[in-house]
């Protein structure tokens, strides 16, 4: 039994080493951690490959880009708690602002650091319906028709779901002529048609496309096209409502982290490359609307985006994220009222 004791002692030693000795190793080749939200997996897979090649060509250095994906809010919280992101590419300005205010890791003026308010690509919210659109859904008002089941994630946990919500709000506001009580009513009606509130955009897509639940999925434009690729274009149709929202997923350098990692130049080059012709083309190919369409190498990609009426979060209706976030999604905000049982 002496052997057992020795094995036990060895196990303990290994554990102690692992627990105390996990000092951050500084690799000779640089690594960069990009903390992103859920639907960007395919985009960054392609982009990272292109950037690594570009970096090698221009500087001769090797770069390994690590990816972390998850709900936008959860990812921001992880960065606040110490996840060593060099850059964040999240779904909402509000999530990056949370990193700014809660941890000070990112400079307050991050939006001015890159062109177009640090938004290299935009997107919008569209409807994904079953083939042939059996419930004849054409506009936001159709979502609250009898017997229509709408799939959308929880705005509390999903960035995409907030854009869904805000796009619906913009529609309601236009239809009611600015009567906020009616708008709240429409939102309440809408969420009565939601049978499942997944925590993330990807969860909702799986619920709609794989589990075949619901009649319409409110989805990122790029996500809707991805469903056609992954689950077969013969099963679904994309419906563009006459009006929607311009979703602006921003990017930022996590200043304090890149300082600690010595990756300032790399991080800056990485995000700048998103604005380059290659970066913009990769974005367009993944159905993100490029912020500078003129540089996209293949004009057909740009022409493929239908022109619809897009409202911005900075429109007076919303007054920017800093106003919209607490009003709609904060504790006790309008979304909370939707699920407050009638007294």
């Amino acid at each position: 039994m002496k052997k057992t004791a020795r094995i036990l002692a060895l196990g303990g030693l290994v554990a102690a080493l692992a627990l105390t000795g996990a000092v951050t190793a500084r690799a000779q080749d640089q690594t960069l951690l990009n903390v992103s939200y859920d639907p960007t997996r395919e985009l960054y897979e392609q982009f990272n490959e292109a950037f690594a090649k570009h970096w090698k060509d221009t500087t001769g250095g090797n770069v390994t880009i690590e990816q972390s994906h998850g709900g936008s809010g959860k990812q921001a919280q992880a960065v606040i708690d110490g996840l060593g992101a060099d850059v964040v590419t999240l779904a909402l300005e509000g999530d990056i602002n949370a990193i700014v205010t809660k941890s000070g890791l990112i400079d307050e003026n991050w939006r001015a650091e890159f062109p177009n308010n640090s938004t290299p690509y935009t997107s919008t919210i569209v409807f994904l319906v079953r083939k042939g659109n059996p419930k004849a859904i054409a506009d936001w008002g159709d979502l609250v028709k009898d017997g229509v089941e709408v799939i959308t994630p929880n705005p509390k946990t999903s960035g995409g779901a907030r854009w869904n919500y805000l796009a619906a709000w913009a529609y309601a506001n236009k239809a009611s002529g600015g009567d906020e009580a009616k708008d709240v009513d429409f939102i309440k009606q809408l969420y009565k048609h939601v049978p499942v509130l997944d925590t993330g955009a990807r969860g909702s897509t799986v619920t709609f496309a794989q589990k075949e639940l619901g009649d319409v999925l409110l989805a990122w434009e790029n996500e809707a096209y991805l469903v056609l690729d992954e689950f077969g274009a013969e099963n679904f149709d994309i419906v563009y409502p006459p009006s929607s929202i311009r979703a602006e997923p921003p990017v930022a350098i996590v200043d304090k982290n890149v300082e600690a990692h010595g990756t300032q130049a790399l991080a800056k080059a990485y995000l700048e490359y998103l604005y380059s012709p290659e970066g913009q083309t990769i974005a367009a190919r993944n159905h993100y609307r490029p912020s500078d369409p003129s540089v996209v190498t293949d004009p057909a990609l740009v022409a493929a985006f239908p022109k619809i009426d897009l409202i911005s979060i900075d429109d007076p209706l919303f007054g920017g994220w800093k106003t919209a976030q607490p009003k709609h999604f904060g504790d006790g905000g309008i979304f909370d009222q939707v699920y407050t049982p009638a007294q």
């Binding site: 921001a76 919280q77 949370a98 929880n154 946990t157 499942v196 509130l197």
Partner: peptide, 26 residues
């Protein structure tokens, strides 16, 4: 979480609420 539907007040369990609070930076 995979089977619940996670609708507040109907099928939202307490651990999910904890996760939601965490993601709201609370």
């Amino acid at each position: 979480i995979f089977i619940a539907g996670n609708l507040p007040n109907i099928s939202e369990i307490a651990p999910v609420l904890i996760v939601i609070k965490l993601e709201e930076f609370d």
